[in-house]
Simulated assay, not measured.
Amino acid sequence: MSKNSSANSLKRFLLIRTDRIGDTILTLPAVTALRSQYQDAFIAFLAQPYTVPLIEQYVGIDISLSYEPHGRHKGWQGLSKLSHELQELNFDAALLFYPRVKLAFAIAKAGIPVRIGTGYRWYSFLLTERIFEHRKDCQKHEAEYNFSLLESLLPDKNPQPQYKFKQWLPEPWWEDFRTVLNSKDYVIVHPGYGASAPNLNNEQYRLIIRLLLEKTDWTVLLTGIAGEENLVHEIAADFPEERVKRVVGRFSLAEFFSVVRNASLLISSSTGPLHMANAADTPLLGFFCPAKPHTPDRWGPYDQQQWVVTPDLDWPEICELKNCPHGGCLHHLSDVEITEALCTQRLNNL
């Protein structure tokens, strides 16, 4: 943005993040920071349709928009439709947190005056303000990389990422859920991961469940998304059904977030539910690969980094997920290390 331009003259903002749940959650603090500076502004958030129900629970967003690249926004005709939709909303500024050529083209074609995003793409000429940071270097957290796009909009400010969700209120389904739980407290164990980062193996998750059953009187919710039924059933095998509940594809995203918000603890690897827990201030325990690009330095739970467990491996510097020289780095965490992290440290600090 030109120094001669007045940031305070901007009234209508579009924030764009169209990838996964965890990535989207790590972008939401940008809404809080913008809203603090532009209290009367109109703020819209463009996201994947399946993340919209979560975005709608966030404070400070006036309208949630769906990007449907395989539906009504498919192809160049669909992209033209998206551009027209954005043009009708008369935005003053667009922030492209997840760089994609079609989205950069759409906001340029929509005539949005201020267009902010990375400077390291061949199509960055479509933006009016370019940020020259290589996120793959993992020099800071993803939430902080997102805040880099706000710098010209928040002159002389240095905000820290903060979450602000709407107040939770129980819906009719909640009482039925509590009845099924048959317990006041519950812990979520989420073994799915979408193949996007290293994960614990089934036996390590079974160890975690055994320890939870021994050390607490909580119900264990073993969760997964549609398509992870076999994984959840394999891990849950032989555990008492009254204590270990298999929950696969049962909840909508909005409902699952309610479950996360009210949990006593959530345990997972680098997943969307882990970031949901951090955003909701739910205690967590996360397991991460120490290497780039999966390092918790960039992708860990922003406010609960002290509850991240990584194997003690100093190579390779760059994770080779599909050809890991360690055969899966998290598999090197011993039973003793997992027990120490969960029982001695995490459970004793709740």
Rank of each mutant, 00 (worst) to 15 (best):
127 L>K: 00
246 R>F: 04
41 A>Q: 07
336 V>D: 12
58 Y>H: 04
285 L>D: 10
101 V>C: 14
54 L>K: 01
249 G>M: 01
9 S>C: 14
137 D>I: 10
253 L>R: 02
97 F>S: 02
138 C>L: 12
30 A>P: 03
78 G>F: 11
211 L>G: 07
46 L>I: 10
29 P>D: 01
7 A>G: 14
282 T>I: 08
147 F>V: 07
273 P>R: 00
329 C>T: 04
208 I>G: 00
241 E>K: 13
17 R>H: 03
86 L>R: 05
83 S>D: 00
82 L>T: 01
72 R>M: 12
15 L>D: 02
224 G>N: 03
82 L>E: 00
99 P>M: 12
148 S>M: 13
289 C>K: 02
42 F>W: 14
135 R>W: 05
291 A>F: 08
341 A>F: 04
103 L>A: 10
182 N>Y: 08
146 N>L: 08
220 V>Y: 01
331 H>I: 09
302 Y>S: 01
332 H>C: 12
331 H>E: 12
25 I>P: 01
5 S>Q: 09
281 D>V: 08
312 D>C: 09
152 S>P: 10
101 V>G: 13
162 Q>M: 07
281 D>H: 13
179 T>S: 08
102 K>A: 11
350 L>N: 15
269 S>F: 04
276 M>F: 06
336 V>W: 15
346 R>T: 03
26 L>N: 12
11 K>M: 04
142 E>N: 06
69 P>C: 09
187 V>H: 04
23 D>Q: 08
306 Q>D: 15
308 V>N: 00
329 C>A: 10
349 N>E: 15
38 Y>M: 09
330 L>S: 06
233 H>A: 10
114 V>A: 10
